[in-house]
C-alpha cells in the first residue's frame, strides 16, 4: 500500500525549500554588480576578482587549510586508536572515564571548550598561534572520528580478525592487513568530518588563536559583524560549491561500492552452488 500523500509531498517540498532557498539566494547575489548586497544591479563576477586580490582573506584561507589538514590527520590517528581501544580493548583501569572523555566533547558548548583550552595554554605558558589551534581542533575532532570509527568496528564480523591471529599474525599485522582495510571507509569519513569541523570552527579558534593567527571563520565573522558584503557572498559560494561537489562525489563512490559488494556476494553465492 502506498502511503505517499499530498501531505508528504508538501512537507518535503516546503522543508527542502526552507533548507535551500537561503543558500540559493546567497549564491545568486554573489554575482551582483552592486556593493549593496540586497539590491540587484546586474550580473558580474567582480566580487570574485576582488576576493582573490584580498591578501588578508588569502592568508586566512591558507592558515585555515593548514590547521585543518594537520589537525584532522592527527585526530584521525588518535580517534581510530581510541575507537579500537573502546571496542576491542576489553577492560582496563579508568575505562569509564575514557569513554566519558570521548563523548563529552561532542555535546560540550564551544565557548566552554574554547575557554578551558585557552586557560590551559596560558597557564603552561604556551604562545598562542597556529600550533595551539591545531591542538584544540585535534582534541575535539578526535572524539568525532572515534565515534564514526567505533560504529564501524562494532558492526563487522570479528571472526576474520581472530582467524588472522590464529593463522599466526601478530596483533599489529592483523590490524594492518585485516581490520584497517575493513574500517577504511569509516576512517576516511572520520578524516573528512574532522577536516570540515576544523574548517568551520569559529568559537574555539577565536579563543585559542591569539592575535597572531587568523583563520577564515574568524575573518568572515569580523567582517560579517559589520553587515553583509558581496565579497563574503562570493567566498560563501566557493565554499558551498566545494562542499556540494565533495558530498555528491562521496555518495556516488559509496553507491558504486554497495553495487560492487552486491555483485561480489551474488558471484560468491553462484560459486557455492
Amino acid at each position: 500500500m502506498r502511503r505517499f500523500s499530498w501531505f508528504n509531498a508538501t512537507a518535503l517540498t516546503a522543508g527542502f525549500a526552507f533548507l535551500y532557498i537561503p543558500m540559493i539566494i546567497l549564491v545568486i547575489y554573489s554575482f551582483n554588480e552592486s556593493r549593496l548586497v540586497t539590491v540587484w544591479a546586474g550580473f558580474s563576477t567582480h566580487w570574485y576578482g576582488e576576493l582573490f586580490r584580498d591578501q588578508a582573506f588569502l592568508d586566512a584561507a591558507w592558515v585555515t587549510l593548514r590547521v585543518a589538514f594537520v589537525s584532522s590527520t592527527i585526530a584521525t590517528i588518535l580517534g581510530t586508536m581510541a575507537a579500537y581501544v573502546l571496542v576491542r580493548g576489553g577492560k582496563f583501569m579508568g575505562r569509564t572515564l575514557f569513554s566519558g572523555m570521548i563523548y563529552a566533547p561532542l555535546v560540550m558548548p564551544e565557548v566552554i571548550t574554547g575557554l578551558s583550552l585557552l586557560l590551559l595554554f596560558i597557564s603552561i605558558g604556551l604562545d598562542r598561534g597556529i600550533f595551539t589551534i591545531i591542538l584544540a581542533h585535534t582534541t575535539f575532532s578526535m572524539c568525532y572520528v572515534s565515534v564514526v570509527v567505533s560504529s564501524r568496528l562494532v558492526s563487522f564480523d570479528r571472526s576474520v580478525e581472530e582467524a588472522a591471529l590464529d593463522l599466526g599474525c601478530t596483533p599489529f599485522d592483523a590490524f594492518r592487513s585485516v581490520t584497517l582495510p575493513l574500517i577504511a571507509p569509516a576512517v576516511i569519513a572520520g578524516w573528512l568530518l574532522a577536516f570540515t569541523l576544523s574548517l568551520d570552527d569559529l568559537v574555539i579558534a577565536s579563543f585559542t588563536a591569539g592575535p597572531s593567527a587568523t583563520t577564515l571563520p574568524i575573518k568572515i565573522f569580523s567582517s560579517v559583524r559589520l553587515g553583509v558584503s558581496p565579497e563574503i557572498n562570493a567566498l560563501s559560494t566557493i565554499l558551498i560549491l566545494i562542499v556540494t561537489i565533495g558530498v555528491i562525489s562521496a555518495s556516488l563512490v559509496s553507491k558504486r561500492r554497495i553495487v560492487q559488494q552486491q555483485r561480489d556476494e551474488q558471484m560468491a553465492e553462484q560459486a557455492q552452488q
Binding site: 543558500m23 539566494i25 546567497l26 568551520d200 569559529l202 571563520p217 553583509v228 565554499l239 562542499v243 558530498v247
Partner: peptide, 21 residues
Amino acid sequence: MLVILPFWTSFLIRVYAWIGI
C-alpha cells in the same frame, strides 16, 4: 543527501545567509 549537505556547509555561512533575508 539533501538533508546532510547543509550540515557539511559552513555553519557561519548558513547563519550569514539569513542576515540578507
